Simulated scan of single mutants.
Amino acid sequence: MSRTNKPWYTLKNQSGNAELMIYDVIGDWAGLSARQLVDTLKTIDIDAITVRINSPGGSVFDGIAIYNALRYHPANITVRIEGLAASIASVIAMAGDTVQMAENALFMIHNPFGWVSGEADDLRRTAGMLDKARDSIAMTYSERCGLPVAEIVTLMAEETWFTAAEAKEKGLIDSIDKPVQLAASFDLSLFNHAPPVKMEPPAPKPATKTVKNEPEDIDALAIVRLCNQAGYPELAEACIRDKQNPDQVREKFQDCESIKSLCAAAHAPDLAAGFIQSANTVDEVRAALFEKLTANAPSVNNTLTPDQQQNIIKPLIDTAAVYRNRNGQTSPQTTQA
């Protein structure tokens, strides 16, 4: 999926109607967070909100928060699926009092997934959390379409893709609109059973002034998945913001492992997370650990007190006496005056 420099959502509050457009990966990036969106929705006192969706999904819990903010808003919510409503984006679509779908659009449901590193108990806790998230999402679909939760769970496990006609037949949407002309901007190969569907691009726009050395677009969802898989989900936002490609992100993971090794060798493994979160380089971490170790080392006082300086320190072994005894010599007589 290609990434544009546009924000993942826009919210326009016009007279009598607000329009929320979710047209990218859902989550905290490009300076916009789901919490900001939810907080803004709470302040909107308006009769109608239109939600336009073309998204492959994103953060499960961010999506659930957006769904709840829309579902319990006093305004009448109209959802228009204009291209793709996949994964958690399809859950947000269920918040509509009315759900419309373009004839050429796609709707996908599947099990939530994630990555975790740690001990067996950590893995079990994560598995339990994913099961609860799955059941909550299945109930959301079931409340709209009326299908039993058990049937929805089966469809989610199979990663089911619906055309507009199929989504309407299942009761997931209310009506089908005319086709919408959209650019094919999402890489559906990230999913397991995506159909071979390609949307026709819109008519070309008049040429505009080009900007040289414009940074290459970043595949945000791929970066998020990469960070989760490596066990560093906290790095995803910074990697996307800095427009790092997958190779650069993998190099960052190697630095993280080096930082963990340095902290472990310094008997300070708890410091690794802070160094990584602060984007410290390996050299900076090495210097910081060295300073910490030397700062904690006890100081050595090499000076002698005046009394110690006046005393003659006798050797533990009289080597001269040993030598005389070995050669059969006796100590010379001491003459006193």
Rank of each mutant, 00 (worst) to 15 (best):
P202Q: 06
L20R: 11
N280K: 15
A75K: 09
I53D: 00
E82F: 03
E214T: 05
L130P: 01
K205S: 00
N5V: 03
V60P: 01
I49F: 10
P206L: 07
I137A: 03
S87F: 07
K209W: 02
I22C: 13
E214P: 00
D131L: 12
S331G: 00
I26V: 15
T160E: 10
A157R: 15
A337T: 12
D28P: 01
G58A: 08
A288T: 07
E200T: 13
I137R: 10
V91K: 04
T281Q: 11
P246R: 04
F61K: 04
L188G: 04
V300I: 05
K42S: 12
S142W: 01
Q329C: 02
D242S: 11
P74Y: 03
I22T: 10
R241D: 13
E169L: 12
S87H: 06
K252L: 13
R71C: 03
K170I: 02
G328F: 01
A273R: 00
D219P: 02
S258Y: 04
L221M: 15
L20S: 09
N54K: 04
A222I: 04
A120I: 07
M108E: 15
Y141D: 05
S117L: 04
D217N: 06
V51I: 13
V249S: 09
A236K: 06
V60L: 11
L182I: 12
S59M: 14
T281A: 11
S117E: 06
T281P: 06
C227D: 07
A167K: 07
G31S: 04
I218D: 00
V149M: 11
Y232C: 12
C239H: 06
R326E: 05
E234G: 01
P233Y: 05
T303E: 08
A85R: 08
H73R: 09
A105M: 04
D242G: 00
S2Y: 07
T210G: 00
W161S: 02
G171D: 00
N5A: 02
Q248C: 04
A65E: 14
P112R: 08
I77R: 12
N104C: 07
I66C: 12
A194G: 01
A93L: 09
L293E: 08
R241K: 11
Q36I: 07
A194F: 15
R71E: 03
